[in-house]
Write a protein that binds this DNA or RNA. Structure first.
Lengths: 129, 129
DNA sequence: TGTTTACTACGAAATTATTCGTAGATCAAT
DNA sequence: ATTGATCTACGAATAATTTCGTAGTAAACA
């Protein structure tokens, strides 16, 4: 299931704020962009049908929850993105980002540490390109 | 302007093979997926109108060339992707990829070297999150 | 109780992307 | 010169996404 851009926006609100009504999602969303209430509602209904959201129908205003985790979703999106934009070469993507200085020093250090760990048992490393 | 997935496929063919006719692009493309000749033609015509491709109309079969570089395009796509999928945190994206072991040992080493260079003059580093 | 307010459901318009068929022109080879 | 292959241009069907209006219902409250 690939969420569309609009769907991702809604997922982000739910991941950040936790289970919410359409009204709450709408309030958050409308701060950052122009959107009607029924548009948000419709989107969330569609996402519910797709299985991206679950909902409690107890009260009159339903309470929606993200039915997919942020981690799983991001992993899927990254896989797809690497495939379409970088022809499967994940390392080219990483190089591209790092070359752009799009990380703070602390983050670079953190990444470096992760790399050391990975290098330590590189015997079973995937060979993606 | 953001190329669609289909447009990216065509750009990749042109980046890889250099200036080509519709027929040549079609031959390459049809090896990996089901597509009609006039579909490829139409796509390339649209991309020409959008400015994604340029073309030589000298001969009867026009010769198309990518009008945008692979690097620029990838940079744009990455920026957009980081924004929509990772809420602007490029480092989270990198961590996500590295955590997935989506790079060979050689590539990891290469990345490590790049990181060392970056760390060396980290004083002027961007702080993206 | 009657009116306003807030909610869901649903249909459908508007937009964008993808697909292909057909028409007409050009070229190559008989 | 006629035929057949190949090319472009173009219109239009299809599909996916995003948008919002309207109708109906339930709740709140004056």
């Amino acid at each position: 299931m690939k969420p569309t851009d609009s769907e991702l926006e809604i997922l982000h609100v739910l991941w950040t704020n936790g289970p919410s009504t359409v009204r709450q999602v709408y309030d958050t969303l409308s701060q950052s962009r122009d959107i009607g209430y029924t548009t948000a509602l419709k989107l969330m209904q569609i996402m519910y049908e797709k299985g991206l959201l679950s909902r409690e129908e107890d009260s009159r205003s339903h309470i929606y929850t993200a039915a997919v985790s942020e981690e799983d979703t991001q992993r899927n999106l990254v896989d797809r993105f690497v495939e379409t934009a970088f022809r499967g070469s994940a390392s080219k993507l990483v190089m591209q980002i790092l070359g752009q200085h799009k990380a703070s020093r602390e983050e670079l250090d953190e990444i470096k540490n992760l790399l050391s760990d990975l290098n330590r048992d590189a015997g079973r490393q995937d060979l993606s390109d």
